[in-house]
C-alpha cells in the first residue's frame, strides 16, 4: 500500500516539470512500470486522483504502461519472459539469469493542452 507515497512522488515531478515549461492544462501523465515493481496500477490511479483533487492538475489521468519481466540466461544465452516469478531459464533450467526488463519505474511524458 505504498501507492499513496508513490503518487506523491509522481505529483512532485509533474509539478516541477510543469513549473519549468509554461505548459497549458495537464491531461495525461504517462508512467512506465515494470512488473517487478510491486505497484498496483488501480490503487496508484485512485491515490493520484484523490491527491490532485482541488489542485491545478485536477482532472488529469495517469496512463500506465506495464513492462513484462524478461531475462537472459547466462548459461544458454536464451532470452525469455517470466510469467510466474520463476527466475530460471525455461530452456536449460539454469538460475544464472539476468533480468533485462521489468524493473522500470519512471514518468515518460506529460500530455498537456
Amino acid at each position: 500500500m505504498h501507492e499513496t507515497a508513490i503518487a506523491h512522488d509522481i505529483i512532485d515531478i509533474v509539478e516541477e516539470t510543469l513549473a519549468s515549461s509554461r505548459a497549458g492544462s495537464l491531461q495525461i501523465v504517462r508512467v512506465t512500470i515494470g512488473e517487478m515493481v510491486a505497484v498496483v496500477p488501480d490503487l496508484l490511479q485512485h491515490a493520484y486522483d484523490s491527491l490532485i483533487s482541488g489542485t491545478r492538475i485536477d482532472g488529469s489521468k495517469l496512463e500506465i504502461t506495464i513492462i513484462p519481466i524478461s531475462a537472459i540466461c547466462h548459461s544458454c544465452q536464451k532470452t525469455f519472459g517470466l510469467d510466474e516469478f520463476e527466475f530460471c531459464c525455461p530452456a536449460c533450467q539454469s538460475v544464472h539469469i539476468e533480468v533485462k526488463t521489468g524493473n522500470e519505474f519512471y514518468i515518460k511524458e506529460l500530455v498537456v493542452e
Binding site: 512522488d9 515531478i13 516539470t17 505548459a23 519512471y106 514518468i107 498537456v112
Partner: peptide, 15 residues
C-alpha cells in the same frame, strides 16, 4: 495537445 518529455524515475528523490 502537446507532449513534454520527462523521463525521470519516480523514486529518484529516494534513490
Amino acid at each position: 495537445m502537446s507532449v513534454i518529455t520527462v523521463e525521470r524515475k519516480v523514486l529518484e528523490k529516494n534513490d
